[in-house]
């Protein structure tokens, strides 16, 4: 086992444990912080994959902004921060079965897919992912339209949020 694999397994395990804690902890603020830990684990996996820009974006957007938004929303909406109701309903066995089947099916599918075991080609040292992304995002023959549409989408999100907060007032 290579050191890289060991690091990956540790990070992936920590991410999964954090994700499990998000749904099992009864304190909603703790759930938010466990969610942050899980998101950070995902960022670490991006970093292991040499996707530095995506890793930093994951931290900046998800931990720096979305997590803060969650916590503000929690403080805004719930007076009782402790969940006392039952954490499972009577369908949990069926749910577990479906989840296990989905996992098993996906695992079997991926095992038979020969590209899974192909080693990724090494990234040439001159390759600058950020600059490449920049030229793709601004090139008329590539992604300039999605780039501008993203701006409209963000505008819609902001107007929607302002509208909701405004009518509630």
């Amino acid at each position: 086992m290579t050191p890289e694999k060991i690091i990956f397994l540790i990070v992936a395990g920590a991410t999964l444990v954090s994700a499990l804690m998000v749904v099992t902890t009864r304190n909603i603020v703790h759930a938010a912080f466990w969610l942050i830990a899980a998101l950070f684990g995902v960022a670490a996996i991006f970093a292991i994959l040499n996707a530095g820009f995506i890793a930093v974006v994951q931290v900046v957007v998800y931990i720096g902004a979305i997590a803060i938004l969650f916590i503000f929303a929690v403080m805004l909406t719930r007076k009782d921060l402790r969940d006392t109701s039952a954490q499972q309903n009577r369908n949990w066995q069926a749910g577990a079965l479906i989840a296990a089947l989905t996992f098993g099916g996906l695992a079997a599918l991926f095992q038979s897919w020969e590209k899974l075991s192909v080693a990724a080609p090494a990234i040439p040292s001159s390759f600058d992912a950020v600059a490449e992304l920049g030229s793709q995002l601004t090139s008329p023959s590539a992604y300039v339209l999605p780039f501008e549409v993203a701006s409209v989408l963000l505008l819609a999100a902001m107007i929607g949020a302002v509208y909701i907060a405004f009518t509630r007032k």
């Binding site: 900046v60 957007v61 902004a65 803060i68 938004l69 503000f72 929303a73 805004l76 999100a157 949020a161």
Partner: peptide, 18 residues
């Protein structure tokens, strides 16, 4: 807490992604 906190966080999120 005031609803303003939520609005600031949301506006910030939009500009962060931008």
């Amino acid at each position: 807490f005031k609803v303003q906190y939520y609005i600031f966080a949301l506006v910030f999120l939009v500009f962060d992604v931008e």
